[in-house]
Protein backbone atom coordinates (compact mmCIF):
# COMPACT_ATOMS: atom_id res chain seq x y z
CA UNK A 1 0.00 0.00 0.00
CA UNK A 2 1.24 3.43 -0.93
CA UNK A 3 1.05 5.06 2.49
CA UNK A 4 2.33 8.39 1.20
CA UNK A 5 -0.49 8.55 -1.36
CA UNK A 6 -2.96 7.46 1.34
CA UNK A 7 -1.84 10.18 3.70
CA UNK A 8 -1.96 12.83 0.98
CA UNK A 9 -5.38 11.75 -0.26
CA UNK A 10 -7.14 13.99 2.21
CA UNK A 11 -8.40 11.06 4.33
CA UNK A 12 -6.47 12.36 7.34
CA UNK A 13 -8.17 15.79 7.15
CA UNK A 14 -11.50 14.20 6.40
CA UNK A 15 -11.09 11.99 9.49
CA UNK A 16 -9.98 14.78 11.82
CA UNK A 17 -12.81 17.06 10.68
CA UNK A 18 -15.27 14.24 11.37
CA UNK A 19 -16.34 13.87 7.76
CA UNK A 20 -15.12 10.31 7.26
CA UNK A 21 -17.45 7.34 7.29
CA UNK A 22 -17.15 4.75 10.08
CA UNK A 23 -15.47 2.40 7.59
CA UNK A 24 -12.89 5.03 6.65
CA UNK A 25 -12.25 5.73 10.34
CA UNK A 26 -11.73 2.03 11.08
CA UNK A 27 -9.34 1.68 8.15
CA UNK A 28 -7.31 4.69 9.31
CA UNK A 29 -7.06 3.43 12.88
CA UNK A 30 -5.83 0.04 11.67
CA UNK A 31 -3.25 1.65 9.39
CA UNK A 32 -2.05 4.02 12.09
CA UNK A 33 -1.19 0.96 14.21
CA UNK A 34 1.01 -0.37 11.42
CA UNK A 35 2.39 2.86 9.98
CA UNK A 36 3.78 5.41 12.43
CA UNK A 37 3.73 8.05 9.66
CA UNK A 38 -0.07 7.80 9.65
CA UNK A 39 -0.12 8.55 13.37
CA UNK A 40 2.25 11.46 12.83
CA UNK A 41 0.07 12.76 9.98
CA UNK A 42 -3.04 12.54 12.16
CA UNK A 43 -1.20 14.34 14.98
CA UNK A 44 -0.08 17.09 12.59
CA UNK A 45 -3.59 17.46 11.24
CA UNK A 46 -5.00 17.71 14.75
CA UNK A 47 -2.49 20.47 15.48
CA UNK A 48 -3.54 22.18 12.28
CA UNK A 49 -7.21 21.94 13.35
CA UNK A 50 -6.33 23.63 16.66
CA UNK A 51 -4.48 26.37 14.79
CA UNK A 52 -7.38 26.93 12.40
CA UNK A 53 -9.86 26.94 15.28
CA UNK A 54 -7.68 29.46 17.08
CA UNK A 55 -7.56 31.63 13.98
CA UNK A 56 -11.35 31.64 13.65
CA UNK A 57 -12.02 31.74 17.39
CA UNK A 58 -14.84 34.02 18.58
CA UNK A 59 -14.78 35.13 22.20
CA UNK A 60 -17.90 33.87 23.98
CA UNK A 61 -20.09 36.29 25.96
CA UNK A 62 -18.58 36.88 29.40
CA UNK A 63 -21.52 35.55 31.42
CA UNK A 64 -21.38 32.08 29.84
CA UNK A 65 -18.58 30.85 32.06
CA UNK A 66 -20.31 31.85 35.28
CA UNK A 67 -23.57 30.36 34.05
CA UNK A 68 -21.74 27.10 33.35
CA UNK A 69 -20.01 27.10 36.73
CA UNK A 70 -23.38 27.64 38.40
CA UNK A 71 -25.03 24.97 36.24
CA UNK A 72 -22.37 22.39 37.12
CA UNK A 73 -21.85 23.60 40.67
CA UNK A 74 -23.24 20.47 42.32
CA UNK A 75 -21.09 18.22 40.19
CA UNK A 76 -17.74 19.66 41.14
CA UNK A 77 -15.76 17.63 43.63
CA UNK A 78 -15.27 19.70 46.74
CA UNK A 79 -11.78 19.71 48.20
CA UNK A 80 -11.92 18.82 51.88
CA UNK A 81 -12.75 22.08 53.59
CA UNK A 82 -12.72 20.99 57.22
CA UNK A 83 -11.61 24.39 58.44
CA UNK A 84 -14.66 26.29 57.14
CA UNK A 85 -16.93 23.57 58.55
CA UNK A 86 -15.31 23.82 61.96
CA UNK A 87 -15.37 27.56 61.57
CA UNK A 88 -19.08 27.46 60.77
CA UNK A 89 -19.66 25.08 63.71
CA UNK A 90 -17.76 27.45 65.97
CA UNK A 91 -19.71 30.35 64.58
CA UNK A 92 -22.96 28.60 65.50
CA UNK A 93 -21.62 27.76 68.96
CA UNK A 94 -20.46 31.33 69.44
CA UNK A 95 -23.81 32.59 68.24
CA UNK A 96 -25.66 30.45 70.81
CA UNK A 97 -23.14 31.34 73.50
CA UNK A 98 -23.61 35.02 72.74
CA UNK A 99 -27.39 34.69 72.91
CA UNK A 100 -27.09 32.75 76.17
CA UNK A 101 -24.69 35.34 77.58
CA UNK A 102 -27.06 38.15 76.63
CA UNK A 103 -29.98 36.31 78.28
CA UNK A 104 -27.92 35.76 81.43
CA UNK A 105 -26.88 39.41 81.38
CA UNK A 106 -30.52 40.49 81.12
CA UNK A 107 -31.55 38.16 83.96
CA UNK A 108 -28.59 39.34 86.01
CA UNK A 109 -29.54 42.96 85.33
CA UNK A 110 -33.12 42.39 86.46
CA UNK A 111 -31.88 40.51 89.50
CA UNK A 112 -29.57 43.40 90.30
CA UNK A 113 -32.44 45.88 90.16
CA UNK A 114 -34.61 43.61 92.32
CA UNK A 115 -31.86 42.94 94.84
CA UNK A 116 -30.90 46.61 94.97
CA UNK A 117 -34.49 47.58 95.78
CA UNK A 118 -34.55 44.85 98.42
CA UNK A 119 -31.25 46.16 99.77
CA UNK A 120 -32.58 49.72 99.99
CA UNK A 121 -35.74 48.50 101.72
CA UNK A 122 -33.68 46.48 104.19
CA UNK A 123 -31.42 49.44 104.75
CA UNK A 124 -34.40 51.67 105.47
CA UNK A 125 -35.85 49.05 107.83
CA UNK A 126 -32.53 48.72 109.57
CA UNK A 127 -32.17 52.48 110.03
CA UNK A 128 -35.69 52.68 111.42
CA UNK A 129 -35.09 49.76 113.77
CA UNK A 130 -31.82 51.28 114.89
CA UNK A 131 -33.46 54.59 115.71
CA UNK A 132 -36.24 52.72 117.49
CA UNK A 133 -33.63 50.78 119.36
CA UNK A 134 -31.83 53.99 120.30
CA UNK A 135 -35.08 55.51 121.50
CA UNK A 136 -35.91 52.41 123.52
CA UNK A 137 -32.42 52.38 125.00
CA UNK A 138 -32.84 56.03 125.94
CA UNK A 139 -36.27 55.25 127.42
CA UNK A 140 -34.71 52.37 129.21
CA UNK A 141 -32.04 54.59 130.73
CA UNK A 142 -34.68 57.10 131.71
CA UNK A 143 -36.79 54.40 133.33
CA UNK A 144 -33.74 53.01 135.03
CA UNK A 145 -32.96 56.45 136.41
CA UNK A 146 -36.56 56.95 137.40
CA UNK A 147 -36.67 53.51 138.93
CA UNK A 148 -33.51 54.29 140.93
CA UNK A 149 -35.16 57.43 142.26
CA UNK A 150 -38.34 55.58 143.14
CA UNK A 151 -36.33 52.80 144.74
CA UNK A 152 -34.48 55.38 146.80
CA UNK A 153 -37.75 57.07 147.75
CA UNK A 154 -39.20 53.70 148.66
CA UNK A 155 -36.15 52.95 150.77
CA UNK A 156 -36.60 56.32 152.53
CA UNK A 157 -40.29 55.83 153.07
CA UNK A 158 -40.02 52.26 154.25
CA UNK A 159 -36.91 52.73 156.42
CA UNK A 160 -37.55 51.44 160.00
CA UNK A 161 -37.20 54.84 161.74
CA UNK A 162 -39.13 56.89 159.20
CA UNK A 163 -42.30 58.56 160.31
CA UNK A 164 -45.09 59.56 158.03
CA UNK A 165 -46.65 62.84 158.92
CA UNK A 166 -49.69 64.22 157.16
CA UNK A 167 -49.82 68.02 156.99
CA UNK A 168 -53.48 68.97 156.53
CA UNK A 169 -54.89 72.19 155.17
CA UNK A 170 -55.62 74.91 157.76
CA UNK A 171 -59.00 76.65 157.97
CA UNK A 172 -59.90 78.05 154.58
CA UNK A 173 -57.35 75.73 152.86
CA UNK A 174 -58.78 72.40 153.97
CA UNK A 175 -58.32 70.75 150.62
CA UNK A 176 -54.48 71.09 150.74
CA UNK A 177 -52.47 68.08 151.83
CA UNK A 178 -48.71 67.56 152.13
CA UNK A 179 -47.11 64.31 153.21
CA UNK A 180 -43.82 64.53 155.15
CA UNK A 181 -41.39 61.71 155.90
CA UNK A 182 -38.94 62.21 158.72
CA UNK A 183 -36.19 59.71 159.36
CA UNK A 184 -35.72 59.87 163.08
CA UNK A 185 -32.29 58.21 162.84
CA UNK A 186 -30.66 60.30 160.12
CA UNK A 187 -32.97 63.29 160.73
CA UNK A 188 -33.52 63.61 156.97
CA UNK A 189 -36.80 65.15 155.85
CA UNK A 190 -38.69 64.41 152.64
CA UNK A 191 -41.86 66.02 151.32
CA UNK A 192 -44.52 65.23 148.78
CA UNK A 193 -45.99 68.70 148.17
CA UNK A 194 -47.71 68.26 144.84
CA UNK A 195 -51.00 69.42 146.26
CA UNK A 196 -49.91 73.02 146.98
CA UNK A 197 -50.82 75.74 144.44
CA UNK A 198 -48.04 77.12 142.28
CA UNK A 199 -46.45 80.02 144.23
CA UNK A 200 -46.90 83.54 142.78
CA UNK A 201 -43.92 85.47 141.35
CA UNK A 202 -41.37 86.35 144.06
CA UNK A 203 -42.86 83.96 146.59
CA UNK A 204 -41.67 80.58 147.84
CA UNK A 205 -42.98 77.93 150.28
CA UNK A 206 -41.05 77.52 153.52
CA UNK A 207 -41.10 74.57 155.94
CA UNK A 208 -41.21 75.23 159.68
CA UNK A 209 -40.51 72.90 162.55
CA UNK A 210 -42.31 73.72 165.80
CA UNK A 211 -39.91 73.13 168.65
CA UNK A 212 -41.15 73.97 172.14
CA UNK A 213 -44.09 75.82 170.56
CA UNK A 214 -41.80 78.07 168.52
CA UNK A 215 -41.41 77.92 164.72
CA UNK A 216 -37.90 77.18 163.52
CA UNK A 217 -37.09 77.54 159.78
CA UNK A 218 -36.62 74.09 158.28
CA UNK A 219 -35.71 75.03 154.74
CA UNK A 220 -37.32 76.20 151.53
CA UNK A 221 -39.28 73.98 149.15
CA UNK A 222 -37.54 73.47 145.84
CA UNK A 223 -40.00 74.69 143.17
CA UNK A 224 -38.51 72.43 140.56
CA UNK A 225 -38.85 69.27 142.62
CA UNK A 226 -41.83 67.07 142.16
CA UNK A 227 -42.70 63.89 143.95
CA UNK A 228 -40.62 63.08 147.00
CA UNK A 229 -38.34 66.04 147.62
CA UNK A 230 -35.52 66.20 150.13
CA UNK A 231 -35.62 69.06 152.63
CA UNK A 232 -33.09 70.09 155.26
CA UNK A 233 -32.50 67.68 158.16
CA UNK A 234 -34.48 68.53 161.30
CA UNK A 235 -33.12 67.47 164.68
CA UNK A 236 -36.34 67.72 166.64
CA UNK A 237 -39.94 68.88 166.09
CA UNK A 238 -43.37 68.53 167.62
CA UNK A 239 -45.13 69.62 164.46
CA UNK A 240 -44.42 70.85 160.93
CA UNK A 241 -46.05 73.68 158.97
CA UNK A 242 -45.64 75.27 155.55
CA UNK A 243 -46.17 78.97 154.83
CA UNK A 244 -45.86 81.07 151.72
CA UNK A 245 -42.99 83.54 152.17
CA UNK A 246 -41.01 85.98 150.06
CA UNK A 247 -38.38 84.43 147.86
CA UNK A 248 -35.39 83.29 149.93
CA UNK A 249 -37.49 82.67 153.02
CA UNK A 250 -38.22 84.56 156.29
CA UNK A 251 -36.95 84.34 159.85
CA UNK A 252 -40.49 84.14 161.26
CA UNK A 253 -43.44 82.68 159.54
CA UNK A 254 -46.26 84.81 158.12
CA UNK A 255 -49.06 83.24 160.00
CA UNK A 256 -51.93 84.20 157.71
CA UNK A 257 -49.98 82.56 154.84
CA UNK A 258 -49.87 79.17 156.53
CA UNK A 259 -51.15 76.47 154.22
CA UNK A 260 -50.75 73.17 156.00
CA UNK A 261 -49.96 71.99 159.55
CA UNK A 262 -49.41 68.53 161.03
CA UNK A 263 -48.38 67.24 164.43
CA UNK A 264 -45.71 64.62 164.95
CA UNK A 265 -47.31 61.75 166.86
CA UNK A 266 -44.85 60.45 169.36
Amino acid sequence: MDIKAYIESGIIESYVFGLATPEEEEELLQLSKVYPEVRVAVGNCEKWLRDVSGRYAITAPGEVKMQLLNRLHDEFSTPVHTVPVIHRYREVVFKYAAVLALCLLAVSGLLNIYLYSRYRQANRDFTRLQSQHDMMAADNRAYQARFAIIEHELQVITAPGTRRISLSGVAGREQRLVTLYWDTHTKDVYLIANDLPVPPEGKQYQLWALVGGKPVPAGLLDEKCSGLCAAEPVQQAEAFAITLEKKGGSVTPTMDQMFVLGKVNI
Partner: peptide, 12 residues
Protein backbone atom coordinates in the same frame (compact mmCIF):
# COMPACT_ATOMS: atom_id res chain seq x y z
CA UNK B 1 -10.57 24.15 30.06
CA UNK B 2 -13.19 26.81 29.43
CA UNK B 3 -10.67 29.64 29.53
CA UNK B 4 -8.45 27.92 26.97
CA UNK B 5 -10.97 26.43 24.55
CA UNK B 6 -14.26 28.34 24.78
CA UNK B 7 -13.37 30.87 22.08
CA UNK B 8 -12.09 28.23 19.63
CA UNK B 9 -15.16 26.02 20.12
CA UNK B 10 -17.42 29.07 19.95
CA UNK B 11 -15.90 29.85 16.56
CA UNK B 12 -16.62 26.31 15.40
Amino acid sequence: LYDHYAAALNGV
